[in-house]
């Protein structure tokens, strides 16, 4: 469980990136922060592993204030995956994945074995183990980033727009893989994105944020879709238009659901599960 209690971050230049933010993030679920660029998502995420120190309030993991923990050890215990992979360009794929096990004192051999195992987990051919990140595609680099985040088997995985820079087809594939992974691994995932579709696809819980990390709504995708907190949220999630605004159309074979563009999205099944 990760708890934000009245957390504020004012940067030295006066920018208030996060203003009195409160949230309890449940364990073993995927929680997504979604909001437009600059609303404070990355700042929130970085306060969890002390890359950014709050100027007010506390962030606690399982009831313990992170400020009381040693920053370096804390970061090693939390997986972190970022946009543009953040891989070390001078480490091979295996060395990148093995980074945290090496930092925590595992032998080179043990760390490499772990890296190869994780390459399998994230769907990377182990033949790529000795390549450098620059020799991989964007999607492969992100997989390496995910593998590195998982290497020390952390309870918490922080993901900051990890699929933001890859093309839509690869992104869809990576999203599916993350869902599969999460089913097996059962981590506490905190995922940041500016893409509502991605948020609703991946999140058990979604926090919709506005500037200053102001919380507009927090709930499951179904709750938010069924009952948007206000017009802004409704517009933001596209409830009035696009593919979440469905209407019933009668056909000779029964009712179907059609989106705002007139595309049939599915069949209406009465009394279904």
């Amino acid at each position: 469980m990760i708890e934000f209690r009245n957390v504020t971050k004012r940067f030295p230049d006066g920018t208030v990136a996060v203003d009195a933010f409160d949230l309890v993030i449940p364990s073993r679920k995927t929680t997504v922060f979604v909001g437009s660029s600059g609303c404070g998502k990355t700042t929130l995420l970085r306060m969890i592993n002390r890359m950014v120190e709050p100027t007010g309030g506390t962030v606690a993991i399982d009831g313990e204030d992170v400020a009381s923990k040693q920053a370096v050890a804390l970061r090693r215990s939390i997986g972190y995956v970022m946009q543009n992979s953040g891989l070390m360009p001078h480490f091979t794929v295996a060395e990148n994945i093995a980074t945290v096990p090496r930092l925590t004192g595992r032998t080179r051999r043990a760390a490499r074995a772990r890296a190869l195992e994780l390459m399998d987990v994230v769907g990377l051919d182990t033949a790529m183990a000795d390549r450098y990140p620059s020799q991989l595609s964007g999607g492969q680099q992100q997989r390496v980033g995910v593998a590195r985040g998982l290497a020390s088997d952390p309870n918490i995985l922080l993901m900051d727009e990890p699929f933001g820079a890859v093309d839509p087809i690869v992104r869809a594939e990576l999203q599916r893989e993350l869902i599969r992974l999460q089913r097996d691994l059962d981590k506490t995932v905190v995922f940041v994105t500016h893409d509502v579709d991605e948020a609703f696809l991946l999140g058990d819980q979604v926090a919709i944020l506005a500037k200053g990390a102001r919380r507009l709504q927090f709930g499951s995708p179904s709750e938010i879709t069924e009952q948007p907190a206000d017009d802004f949220v409704a517009a933001f999630i596209g409830a009035e238009r696009g593919k979440r605004a469905l209407r019933v159309k009668q056909t000779p074979h029964g009712p179907v659901l059609v989106d705002a563009e007139g595309r049939t999205q599915g069949v209406l099944v009465e009394g279904g599960a």
């Binding site: 970061r75 090693r76 972190y80 001078h90 930092l103």
Partner: peptide
């Protein structure tokens, strides 16, 4: 050295001294 790589190294748990020898210096190589 790309500041993003440096931040990334810190984020995964390099201490300052270790990061200098393992990341900054080799990348400045």
């Amino acid at each position: 050295v790309d500041p993003a790589v440096r931040r990334s190294a810190t984020a995964v748990g390099y201490g300052d001294a270790r990061r200098f020898w393992a990341v900054d210096l080799p990348l400045a190589g």
